[in-house]
Each structure stands twice: as structure tokens, then as C-alpha cells.
């Protein structure tokens, strides 16, 4: 029988891994929402990225080329979303749902026509740090993950830095809070939003790739299974701050890892209720922790110069 220490270790390591795809997608969504664009098509972008990465890695045997393919596809999907929401002022929620359906269908269609069946790839390898990876507890917890996991966590300080310490961050926040004032100061709202939404697409696609060639090394139709929508929810959980989003992703993932253990240990709780736990807890935590944040003032509002 496993010891409690072992179980806690398992939960922590699982949680760290599970948070990976959420972090990629949610960091992209944070940037895009901070600039005033709600992208509900994250799930579709993730699926397209997951497929592109898998397919290229499968054909070429190179995970690097796979990642590049995900970036390319994410760029296209992001640009399309940016064009529709920034240029054509389309209602963002609805066009996002459109892009979700498009990505869901197209990734599946390509999967059926180009691959035909579920198969596996080598994918991105697990990290091995000399000494560190062999540490008894810490090694397993922190130093033996897939490289995609480290990428996800590296994004958090990066996005934080960009948002809070660079002129780009200032422009992004201005575009999301008061686009008219920013515009009058010479900031091109369109350019800023194009950049964030496109980058959001790239990051979502990488999130998909972190599943298909990172953690799972397979592709299956609809493999993200609602993950992209959770990522969007986590941006709200984190009040549009990278660190808050990180905490949300970790909380959700840790509880999810915990519920897996609840079942493995055979605790007398119906599986359905165990599966429910992360969703319930996410809401409960938000109720207990008093929320002061409000969304970026111009979120979902297309910018029209007056």
C-alpha cells in the first residue's frame, strides 16, 4: 500500500502536468482579453495545433518540426480570429464558437483523411537534469517532466513581464481599458489586438501540441474534450493576471489529480461526484476569496474610431 507521502507526491506531480495545456491556452487568452478581445475559439485552435504538431512529428519524426507546425497553424487560426474580430468587428463570442466548431471538425477530418487511425509518436522527450532529476522527491516533482511542461510554466513570468514591465504591456492594457484614449495617443489599437489575438492562437495551438506530442504522444478526435473552455474560464478565475491564472490552473489540476486518487484508493464516493470536484471547488474558492477585479473595460467591444 502506498504511503501518504507518496500519494501527495503523486497528486502534486499530476497537478503540475495537468495544468500544462491550460497554461499555454490561458496565457494566450489573458493577452488577448487584456487587449479587449474575447477568444472563445481556444478549443478549436488547440485541436488544430494538436493535430498539426502530431501529424508533422509523425511524418518527419521530429518533434521540433511538429512544434513549428503547431506555431504555423496557430498563427493562421489566430490571424483569422483577429481579422474577424478586429477588422470586421464581429461579435466575439459567436465568432469564437464558430472557430471552435471549425477547428473541431477540420482537425478530425484531417485526422481521418491523413492518418486514418490512432497511432503514437516519439514526441517531445522528458527532461533529464543531471543530479536534479535523480533527487528522491524533488526529482519526480519538478525535474522529470516533459519539456513542454517547463515551457508552460516559463510563459507565466514572461507574460507577466510583458504586461507589467514593457511598453507593449502598456499598449495592450490601454487597448483593453480605454482604446479611445490610447488611440488618441497614437497607439494603433488594431495592431495591438492583431498581435495579441494571433499570439493567443499560437499559444493555444502550442497547448494542443503539449498534449498531442508532449504529454500523450497520440492524436484522437476531440482529444481536448472541453479543455479550451476551461482555459478561458481560468482567465476569469485569475482576474486577467498571469499569476492568478497560474494559481487557478494549479488549483483546478490539483483537485483533478486528487479526485483520481480518491477513486484509486477506493474511497466510497461515486465516481461522478469525484469527477465533479474540481469544477465545484473552483467556484467555491472564488466565492470565498473576495473578488475585486473587473474585466478590461473594452472587453468584447470592437474599436471604432469616433
Amino acid at each position: 500500500m502506498e504511503s501518504w507521502g507518496n500519494i501527495l507526491l503523486g497528486i502534486a506531480a499530476s497537478g503540475i502536468r495537468l495544468a500544462t495545456p491550460y497554461l499555454y491556452a490561458a496565457m494566450g487568452e489573458t493577452l488577448s482579453q487584456r487587449s479587449g478581445v474575447l477568444n472563445l475559439g481556444v478549443e478549436g485552435q488547440m485541436l488544430m495545433g494538436a493535430f498539426a504538431a502530431f501529424y508533422v512529428a509523425y511524418r518527419t519524426g521530429s518533434a521540433g518540426l511538429g512544434l513549428l507546425a503547431a506555431v504555423g497553424v496557430g498563427l493562421l487560426m489566430g490571424l483569422a480570429m483577429a481579422f474577424v474580430s478586429v477588422h470586421l468587428h464581429a461579435e466575439q463570442g459567436i465568432s469564437g464558437i464558430g472557430f471552435y466548431l471549425f477547428g473541431l471538425g477540420l482537425s478530425d477530418l484531417l485526422f481521418q483523411k491523413l492518418l486514418g487511425t490512432v497511432d503514437s509518436v516519439q514526441g517531445v522527450p522528458d527532461a533529464h537534469f543531471p543530479l536534479l532529476s535523480d533527487l528522491p522527491v524533488l526529482g519526480e516533482l519538478f525535474f522529470r517532466h516533459n519539456w513542454m511542461v517547463y515551457g508552460a510554466y516559463a510563459l507565466v513570468p514572461l507574460v507577466w513581464f510583458v504586461l507589467n514591465k514593457t511598453p507593449w504591456g502598456l499598449m495592450i492594457k490601454a487597448a483593453g481599458e480605454n482604446p479611445h484614449a490610447a488611440d488618441s495617443l497614437g497607439v494603433s489599437i488594431a495592431k495591438v489586438r492583431y498581435a495579441t489575438v494571433t499570439l493567443g492562437g499560437v499559444l493555444s495551438a502550442l497547448g494542443g501540441a503539449s498534449l498531442s506530442i508532449g504529454l500523450l504522444k497520440i492524436f484522437q478526435q476531440n482529444m481536448t474534450s472541453g479543455l479550451g473552455f476551461i482555459a478561458v474560464a481560468l482567465v476569469y478565475f485569475g482576474s486577467w493576471r498571469p499569476v492568478g491564472v497560474l494559481l487557478g490552473a494549479l488549483l483546478f489540476s490539483l483537485v483533478n489529480a486528487l479526485q483520481l486518487w480518491v477513486q484509486v484508493l477506493g474511497l466510497p464516493i461515486p465516481a461522478d461526484f469525484a469527477v465533479m470536484a474540481p469544477y465545484v471547488l473552483t467556484i467555491v474558492v472564488l466565492v470565498l476569496v473576495v473578488q475585486r477585479a473587473r474585466p478590461p473595460a473594452a472587453l468584447t467591444k470592437p474599436f471604432v474610431r469616433e
Binding site: 478549436g44 483569422a80 474577424v84 464581429a90 461579435e91 459567436i94 465568432s95 464558437i97 464558430g98 472557430f99 471552435y100 466548431l101 471549425f102 477547428g103 473541431l104 471538425g105 477540420l106 482537425s107 478530425d108 477530418l109 485526422f111 481521418q112 478526435q221
Partner: peptide, 15 residues
């Protein structure tokens, strides 16, 4: 899958 993708495309184009 094609049908799903087409639905998505219609939504994006119409909006």
C-alpha cells in the same frame, strides 16, 4: 467532421 467544420465556417462568415 466535415459537416462540423462547415457549420463553424458558416457561423464565422455570417457573423
Amino acid at each position: 467532421a466535415l459537416v462540423t467544420a462547415l457549420n463553424g465556417l458558416v457561423v464565422v462568415f455570417v457573423v
